[in-house]
């Protein structure tokens, strides 16, 4: 573990552990917001993780943000960590004053058609936000504007883990170019959201592995711990391999933020994590058997998230196709030289 992860883990673990209560999940899954948890999170300054010190933040950058998201994934924190951190970062970057309210991002990549209402689906946690931070292009420039919830229509939906994934409808006339975001593209911001999910997945993968190994060492059948059966060991070994690869891919993407290779390594991270998510969930449930199939047993808190997160902000197929197309279009025979730039 590098210094940044160690620092964040040391200081946020206790907070996140406290969040994982049955009541918090019930609150969230019944459509309410775990307000006190959110307040604790904000009061400890974590919302400003990625902001610079001049912006009133912790100065840990997006790298720090993604590291925190991984920890949140490990603890299955029922809060909009990825969306709030990234929206806050974008808001601050475009000069909007930060007052620690919950903002979630909504990205629009195409020029806006003013003639009809704009409908955006899969906007995480929108119903609980103070405002939605719209990012949209006007001519060759990205703009941001915060629209208050009262000025939007929200239709509630949620993913398999019960996390809000809402649909918002807005009259495009409200999207008045106010603040500009320079040096970024909608595609890049989308890739950060994907990396946020990948980071959460990698945290959840670690948790699922630990849980499953512990269970295999506790549960006995035929007079011995089930972890002593080779069939079980071999499956868990593969789960550990895929988990290691997933964590490494996120680390590599974090190490390449703000470099030319940024999107490629993010693509790789989302592919690797989304693939591992399915394998880990399947194996963990096989090893836990019936007890893991209950709502009471906490494995489902991680696996329902894994099954949801692997498809959000692009699944492994979407990102593979993008990465593959890129590789197919490289100049003659340059796959290898392209590959080797990915570790520079």
């Amino acid at each position: 573990m590098n210094e940044l992860s160690q620092l964040i883990e040391d200081s946020a673990t206790r907070l996140f552990e406290g969040f994982a209560t049955e009541q918090a999940y019930q609150t969230m899954e019944s459509g309410e917001f775990p307000q006190t948890l959110w307040q604790d999170f904000v009061n400890d300054g974590w919302l400003r993780t990625a902001l610079t010190e001049e912006q009133g933040g912790a100065g840990l950058g997006l790298a720090g943000g993604f590291t925190l998201m991984r920890l949140a994934g490990y603890h299955a924190v029922p809060l909009p960590i990825v969306e709030s951190l990234i929206a806050t970062y974008l808001a601050a970057s475009s000069g909007i004053e930060i007052n620690d309210e919950l903002l979630v991002p909504a990205l629009i990549s195409h020029p806006i058609d003013q003639s009809s209402d704009l409908v955006l689906s899969n906007i995480p946690w929108a119903r609980h936000a103070s405002g939605v931070l719209f990012v949209f292009p006007v001519d060759d420039q990205l703009h941001t504007v915060v629209i208050r919830l009262g000025d939007l229509t929200i239709s509630s939906d949620h993913n398999m883990a019960g996390e809000p994934r809402d649909e918002i409808t807005i009259n495009p006339k409200q999207l008045i170019a106010n603040n500009t975001l320079s040096g970024m593209s909608v595609e890049q911001i989308y890739s950060w959201l994907a990396l946020g999910r990948a980071a959460q997945i990698s945290g959840a993968l670690r948790k699922v592995l630990l849980r499953t190994v512990d269970y295999a060492n506790e549960r006995s059948q035929f007079g011995r711990q089930i972890g002593k059966f080779q069939a079980v060991q071999q499956q868990l070994a593969v789960q550990a391999e895929m988990t290691s690869a997933a964590i490494c891919a996120v680390d590599a993407a974090i190490a390449h933020l703000d470099t030319e290779q940024e999107w490629e390594l993010i693509a790789c991270a989302k592919i690797t994590n989304s693939e591992a998510a399915g394998y880990a969930a399947k194996t963990a449930h096989a090893v836990h058997a019936a007890i893991g199939f209950t709502q009471e047993y906490p494995l489902q808190l991680s696996t329902r998230r894994l099954w949801s997160w692997r498809d959000e902000y692009g699944n492994e197929g979407d990102w593979s196709s993008k990465l593959g197309r890129h590789c197919m279009q490289l100049e003659n025979d340059s796959l290898w030289s392209w590959l080797t730039t990915q570790t520079t």
Binding site: I271, S320, C327, M328, L335
Partner: peptide, 14 residues
């Protein structure tokens, strides 16, 4: 073929 190529390239990268 893009998707398959991309999958294998990603594995190689990691």
């Amino acid at each position: 073929a893009d998707t398959i190529i991309g999958q294998y390239v990603a594995r190689l990268m990691v």
